[in-house]
Nucleic acid binder design. Structure first.
Length: 127
DNA sequence: TCCTTACCTG
DNA sequence: CAGGTAAGGA
């Protein structure tokens, strides 16, 4: 009740930030992986790419982020995942991946689509 | 100069 | 996932 809580708070907050950061990495790594696979499989247009709750991509992400299906993944997540997938597709199609920092342009677009952290996390993950 | 974040490693 | 850090922003 005195000084410790503050340290805990600060510590846990940074841990959560790190946690989400790792999630973000996982997210992008897998979307790129699936995207390249789609291309290898012959998908020719970004419009042919979609992400639904039945998609393998979704399953992979959900398996990692929401293993026990403790949350109902908002449809917005699917939309953003699809946008991200198409963003990667277009970039790779244009051979932009030749540039060492080609992903930054994508990150810049996607981060603007970030949703706020749901209240459940703020109120549930406490000490 | 402090804080955040992307990148890499274990 | 956590730790460490170089790089960039305020």
């Amino acid at each position: 009740m005195s000084s410790l809580p503050h340290q805990f708070n600060r510590c846990i907050t940074s841990q959560l930030i790190k946690w989400f950061s790792n999630f973000r990495e996982f997210y992008y790594i897998h979307i790129e992986k699936f995207c390249r696979q789609f291309i290898a499989d012959g998908v020719s247009s970004a419009s042919d790419l979609s992400v639904t709750r039945d998609s393998e991509l979704f399953r992979a992400l959900n398996m990692h982020f929401n293993k026990g299906n403790d949350f109902q993944v908002p449809s917005r997540f699917l939309e953003v995942a699809e946008i991200t997938l198409r963003e990667f597709f277009n970039a790779i199609s244009l051979a932009k991946d030749l540039d060492p920092s080609w992903k930054k342009a994508i990150y810049k677009v996607i981060c603007k689509l970030d949703s706020d952290v749901p209240e459940v996390f703020k109120s549930t993950i406490c000490w």
